[in-house]
Amino acid sequence: MSVLIYAENHNGKFPKSALEAVSYGADVAAMLGTEAIAITCGTIAGDGGLGNAGASKVLTAAVNGTSDSQQMSKLVLAAAAQTGANVIIFSHDVAGKMIAPRVAARLDAGLVPGATALPSADFVVRKNVFSGKAIAEVAMLTANKVITVLPNSLGVKNTGTTAATEAFTADLGAARITVKEVKTENKDGEIPLPEAELVVSAGRGMKGPEHWGPIEELAKILGATTACSRPVADIGWRPHHEHVGQTGVTIRPNLYIAVGISGAIQHLAGVNGSKTIVVINKDPEAPFFKAADYGIVGDAFEVLPKIIEAAKAFKASH
């Protein structure tokens, strides 16, 4: 028995979502009185910080992470067999959504996607349903269990320890897909939206793409990532990957600042898990205020410069 965590690194660096999955796995292992073993692909320096996040051992597979879900699931299944894992944890990110279902189907295991809390002693796991409008308690009924952890829901441990690393090999079989090209739209150093803790977002109230300057400036000062409402991406004012909401990216940052966004239910579905929501809108009746923690009724073009000034002063003194 053990708990296995698939932790994805990007060029040797583990994103917060991977560390969260490892921490979650460590807590589950503690609950079961067993070990938390992480598996990752490619080369990492030392244990890559996974010991600090709670792993007791790190298996490093001498293959690059691939976009072939079959190869990746073969790798995880081989590691699960070797370590006797009956609970397997992923992040509910691009990789987790691609690999975890395959692993669960192969092991005939129940899968809870997007867990937001640790399992109870009898393996009831909480997850958001109805696009964040409700919470479900899901009982896992099988001996083998697979859980994907919703990013930004639970903390990252800081154990102060290092984990032993061990090389791992498995037969992945031939690839059945070929990657032709990778296009990343992110600007240098910008944190991708699903991982961002601070997000500054704007909607049609900004009137046109040429007015995004203050949004970008505020985001830059705060170290935030920019997002937008759907119509803004649809008309091409902003790139598609910024579109949040029911049909776009779902996010749950610590802070979501919404400027000139009405707060339609389909928009809220993608952002209502945010811890603190700030709404800036000139219409006091805008529905978004009902979901807000802080609201400013006013013209964005007058309000934003004041906030930018204050943010600059704050950053200069902290």
């Binding site: 669960a104 349903v129 409700a134 009924l141 400013i296």
Partner: peptide
């Protein structure tokens, strides 16, 4: 392989501070 035991609504926001 899994069964939903129970649903709840998320805690309501305490209200917007203007």
């Amino acid at each position: 392989s899994t069964a939903v035991k129970n649903y709840t609504l998320p805690p309501a926001k305490s209200g917007c501070k203007y």
